[in-house]
């Protein structure tokens, strides 16, 4: 049997649009993942603390408010400061394509926008685990 893959699904910032995060969480549970859902309105510090304590294989961040250019690099910076470099970080929500390169630069491995199939995300995670 394959080992269980643990994920954190988090919503950084103030936006309350958790439909996507919840649908993804359920979908990934049904794909056999263990999904830790941390709820709304998470600061970068909250998220990094969750990562430290839960030690997941991947961190999925959903943002629809446009705050991603500030919040995602801040999260990556804090992860780095804690010497956490072996987890896969993914973005989702409403993030324009032109912002992808800058996010990739700081370590957000991929961004999944509206209309992504859950299966695609599941496959991507399994294929790109860092440990």
């Amino acid at each position: 049997m394959d080992r269980k893959i643990r994920l954190i699904v988090a919503k950084p910032g103030l936006d309350g649009h958790d439909r996507g995060a919840k649908v993804i969480s359920r979908g990934l549970r049904d794909a056999g993942f263990e999904v830790i859902y941390t709820g709304l309105h998470q600061t970068p510090e909250d998220i990094v603390q969750s990562v430290i304590q839960e030690d997941p294989d991947a961190l999925l961040l959903s943002i629809l408010s446009g705050a991603h250019p500030v919040l995602l690099p801040e999260i990556m910076k804090q992860l780095k400061a804690n010497e956490i470099d072996d987890i896969l970080v993914l973005g989702g929500g409403i993030i324009p394509e032109e912002d992808f390169p800058a996010l990739k630069e700081v370590g957000v491995e991929a961004v999944f926008g509206p209309g992504t199939k859950i299966q695609e995300i599941a496959d991507f995670i399994r294929a790109n685990l860092k440990r």
């Binding site: 910032g13 936006d15 309105h41 408010s65 446009g66 705050a67 500030v70 919040l71």
Partner: peptide, 11 residues
């Protein structure tokens, strides 16, 4: 406020 980081004027 720190809670407003990255959100100002966005939505």
């Amino acid at each position: 406020s720190p809670m407003s980081a990255g959100e100002i004027g966005k939505e």
